[in-house]
Simulated assay, not measured.
Amino acid sequence: MKFGAILKACRDRAGLSQEELAYQLHINQSDVSKFENGTKEPPISIFQAWINNTQAQEVMVAYLCGLDGIGILQNLIDVLPELTTVGTFILNLL
């Protein structure tokens, strides 16, 4: 599984630079870059700390379940017909 894109998305969502996150995780900025680019796989302890420090637990759960943002919205549309209009509007924005 490729984690780099989701790790970068979590960091971006939290509004952190690579340097800021590296400081919080007690690692080098170059390691953050390598993890995000997929040239180095993070140990589970770093992976978990990354998710906790970026407060992106729901993003990780969705990702591990094989859902991206559009997939989550599509599931909501399928399950909750009353959200169809709102969901369609949001999907059109993406």
Rank of each mutant, 00 (worst) to 15 (best):
E41M: 08
L76Q: 12
D68S: 05
N37R: 15
M60D: 04
L73S: 08
P81R: 07
I77E: 12
M1H: 09
Q55F: 04
L73M: 15
A62Y: 07
I77V: 00
N92I: 00
V86M: 10
E20Y: 01
M1Y: 05
K40D: 06
T54R: 08
T39L: 08
G4W: 02
L7R: 10
K34C: 05
A62N: 13
V59W: 07
V32N: 10
D12A: 14
F35G: 02
N53D: 13
T85R: 06
R11G: 06
G66M: 02
V79T: 11
Y63H: 09
S33C: 07
A5S: 12
D12M: 14
L21M: 07
A49V: 02
G38M: 05
N37Y: 05
Q57T: 06
N92Q: 06
Q55R: 12
N75E: 10
E36K: 10
G15W: 12
V59E: 11
I6T: 04
F35Q: 03
G38C: 13
Y23H: 15
E41F: 05
T84M: 01
L93S: 08
L76V: 00
Q74N: 10
V86H: 10
L7E: 04
E20C: 07
G15E: 12
P81Q: 08
G87T: 02
G38Y: 05
S17Y: 03
A22Q: 13
T85Q: 09
N28C: 10
C65P: 00
A49G: 04
Q18T: 12
M1T: 06
A14P: 06
L91F: 01
I46N: 13
K8R: 14
I51Y: 05
I72K: 09
R11I: 01
I6N: 08
L80K: 15
S45P: 01
L91C: 07
R13T: 11
I72R: 13
A9S: 15
T88Q: 13
C10L: 11
H26I: 00
M60Y: 08
N75M: 06
L91R: 14
R13G: 15
N28Y: 11
K34F: 03
C10H: 00
N52D: 15
S45A: 15
G4E: 05
H26Y: 04
A49L: 12
K40L: 13
L25P: 05
P81M: 01
S30K: 15
L25R: 11
G4A: 05
K8Y: 02
A49H: 04
